[in-house]
């Protein structure tokens, strides 16, 4: 008699627990307001990343095509992966002295682990995070970027 009672109690508890779970799924099924899925890429035009989002390392330039990089190479040594390559150039100053400036700031995006040490290490705040995140390309060589724009120069008030 007892075992029959337990048998039916088991069935009751099983059905009850399953219904409790189905109540949860049913509630979401009938309340479309709770849907949180983002319709990417349809929402690309309205999609805005957070200010601090780490998309890629960029070198901000002002309106006169000037940047803040002195070419000191501290970011190159701070990088754990060899992502950054600094190529320096020597120019003749008007007073006859030779000065080293940045020729190319090469950034290998494919090797970057987005740790942010280069940006933290930079003494003249020349580097920053960019918000671009759609980095897929068909050719690996396109992941190597030159951060200083062609023909750009250094902002005058930056001291080395």
């Amino acid at each position: 008699m007892n075992s029959i009672f337990e048998y039916f109690a088991d069935i009751f508890h099983t059905v009850k627990s399953l219904l409790t779970g189905m109540k949860v799924t049913g509630r979401y099924f009938f309340s479309p307001g709770e849907i949180v899925t983002q319709q990417y890429p349809e929402n690309r035009k309205t999609l805005k990343m957070y200010d601090r989002f780490k998309g890629e390392v960029i070198m901000p330039h002002n309106d006169h095509n000037e940047h803040r990089c002195t070419g000191c190479g501290i970011c190159e040594t701070a990088c754990p992966n060899g992502t950054i390559e600094i190529i320096q150039a020597r120019i003749d100053m008007p007073d006859g002295k030779k000065k080293r400036i940045i020729d190319k700031h090469i950034y290998h995006l494919g090797m970057c682990t987005f740790c942010g040490l280069c940006i933290k290490a930079c003494p003249s705040d020349a580097l920053a995070w960019g918000q671009e995140f759609e980095h897929a390309v068909f050719d690996r060589s396109k992941l190597t970027k030159t951060l200083n724009q062609p023909g750009s120069s250094i902002i005058k008030d930056i001291v080395e």
Binding site: Y50, R52, F53, F114, G116
Partner: peptide, 21 residues
């Protein structure tokens, strides 16, 4: 996490001595 440190999974937010920002 993304709003505060810029990344979702691999943050590298702590540095020896404190925080990145």
């Amino acid at each position: 996490f993304e709003e505060s440190f810029g990344s979702r999974l691999l943050h590298s937010y702590y540095t020896p001595g404190g925080l990145m920002m």
